[in-house]
Simulated scan of single mutants.
Amino acid sequence: MSKKIATYLLLAVFILSLGLVGCGKQTNSSTAKVLRVGAETTFPPFEFQDETSKEYTGFDMDLARAIGKQMGYEVQIQNIGFDGLIPALDAGTIDMAASAMTITDERAKKVNFSQPYYKSGLSIVVKSSNAVINGFKDLEGKRIAVQIGTTGAEAAHKIKNAQVREFNSSSEAYIELKNNGVDAVVNDLPVNAYYLTKSGDKDAKLVSEVANSEYYGLATAKKNTELNEKVNKALDELKKNGEYEKIYIKWFGKKPE
């Protein structure tokens, strides 16, 4: 064998060994535990994008990351329209939805819900000058803005003669109120309260009446009962070790009820 041929053979072996090392790295990365979490990220204080860091933040986002850490998973957040979350779970493009999703009988037919992790209710935001709307009974025949796919939207559609306008995000609904396109916004109480506090909008106010006490749950695919059990176990552990309470106080300024 000539020196030239021997050199080529050694080079070929070297290149082959590099390829095998590369394959080994890919195998290791593919076996990493990842929890793909879907959320509609325009729903503060539960999920929204930080203006400075551009990272997804909020109560649900902190809770989802804490659950993933407790389970030993890396959490990856995906921004998905609220009405697309359940289809995404069905399709397997996400593993869990953490998006202030109210537990309802209808949704429970399509997904597995975790134990409740937050108690909420529906409320109304109107212009500060509005002295006519003081409760849900006063919304009859009025123009109402809601976020598509939410329980607020469901409730608004049941109001007699109401003209309901659906928007992709809660922020769009508030803008419509500001521009006098609607008479009121119906949304979850903590979301409405957070908007008024953080936006500093002096031209809007929260109607005192709260309706339809409801509970939020983390959703997983109907067929993935194993993941649902792991999520519930992690939630229990976070409540016992104080991490859940810490996250709750961070976003709502008080201990959970």
Rank of each mutant, 00 (worst) to 15 (best):
M1K: 11
L10H: 07
V13P: 05
F14K: 00
L18A: 13
L20E: 11
Q26A: 15
T27F: 12
E40F: 02
E47W: 00
F48R: 02
F48V: 03
S53L: 06
K54L: 14
E55G: 12
T57N: 11
G58K: 11
G58W: 09
R65F: 05
I67K: 03
I67M: 12
Q76K: 15
Q76L: 10
N79Y: 00
F82L: 13
L85Q: 10
D90V: 04
M96N: 08
A97R: 06
A97N: 06
A98Y: 05
M101P: 01
D105A: 15
A108R: 06
Y117A: 05
L122M: 13
I124G: 02
I124C: 09
A131F: 06
A131C: 00
L139P: 02
I144Y: 02
Q147V: 14
T150H: 04
T151G: 11
T151N: 13
A153T: 04
A162T: 10
A162W: 09
S169K: 14
S170H: 10
S171A: 13
L177C: 10
V185F: 01
D188Q: 10
A193C: 02
Y194G: 03
Y195K: 07
T197D: 06
T197A: 12
S199L: 08
S199G: 12
D201L: 05
D201H: 00
K205E: 03
V210T: 05
N212M: 08
E214K: 05
E214N: 13
Y215T: 03
G217A: 04
A221C: 01
K222R: 13
K223A: 13
N228H: 01
N232W: 10
L235D: 01
D236I: 00
D236P: 00
L238R: 02
K239R: 15
N241T: 09
Y244M: 06
E245L: 04
K246Y: 01
I247T: 06
Y248A: 02
W251Y: 15
F252A: 05
